Simulated scan of single mutants.
Amino acid sequence: MTDFPACTCCAYDLRDDELGRLLCSRCEDRVGQQLAAIQGPRGLYAQLAHHLQRGSGSGGPAVSGSKNAPAPLRVDILSLQCAGGPILGPLETWVRDWETHRHAELNEGGTLQQRVDHACRTLRFNLSWAAGNHPAADAFADEVALIHRTLQGITAGEKPARKLYAQCPCGGTFPFTLATHGETCRHCGTEYGHGEIMRMQLAERRAAA
């Protein structure tokens, strides 16, 4: 049986005009759209500011009619906004990587929003090159999709994913959600992919606590 070249991201066979590429045109377009949705003054990253205060899930700034102290800020949102957090950190890591291939330029100046915008712009500008040449193009596409899904879930007011606990063969347990791409057992250091975790036995809540 003949194996046809496939997209490293979605695993669909490449069309004749896509042969030699790592990502198919559909996956390239999707990543480009996700990066575009993240950046900008009305983008998903900028919208995090409207969800900083607890109870502000309506999409606009939280307004209190009382004279009480304002509600505490959401730590999970603050962690997403920081320089080394799971949004800007990975984006700039990919920019640094592509810079070694002479297909991106890192800019760590300006505000966090400006840095996010720059990272998204330069990654979009060189996306066609990555789709055709970067050996980790599929990992890049997966990470952008995870960032986009995380931001979209928060700005749409979705409830956080339910946290479950997996039972590692070593006897330890580790937390995960159904949307996880992979986790590492803190007891033995073994790394598990999404499929492996989904097949693992769930730990009893008391044992995992």
Rank of each mutant, 00 (worst) to 15 (best):
M1Y: 06
A6C: 05
T8C: 14
C9Y: 10
D13W: 06
R15W: 05
D16E: 14
G20S: 03
R21E: 01
L23W: 04
C24N: 08
S25Q: 02
R26K: 11
R30F: 03
G32N: 08
Q34S: 08
G40M: 04
G43T: 00
Q47K: 04
H51I: 00
H51P: 07
Q53E: 00
R54L: 11
G55R: 05
G55Q: 13
G57V: 03
G59S: 03
G60L: 13
S64R: 10
G65V: 05
G65Q: 09
S66W: 09
K67I: 14
N68M: 08
A69Y: 10
P72Y: 01
Q81T: 11
P86L: 01
I87H: 02
W94F: 10
V95M: 13
L106S: 04
G110N: 05
T111L: 06
Q113W: 07
R115P: 09
R115E: 14
D117I: 09
H118A: 13
H118R: 13
A119E: 12
R121P: 07
S128M: 09
A131Q: 15
A131G: 08
A131P: 05
P135S: 08
V144G: 09
I147E: 06
R149K: 10
R149S: 10
G153D: 12
G153V: 03
G153T: 15
G157T: 14
A166P: 03
Q167I: 00
C170Q: 00
G172W: 02
P175Y: 02
T180E: 07
H181Q: 12
E183T: 06
E183I: 01
T184H: 09
R186N: 15
T190W: 02
E191G: 04
G195V: 07
I197D: 10
I197L: 09
M198Q: 14
L202M: 01
R205F: 03
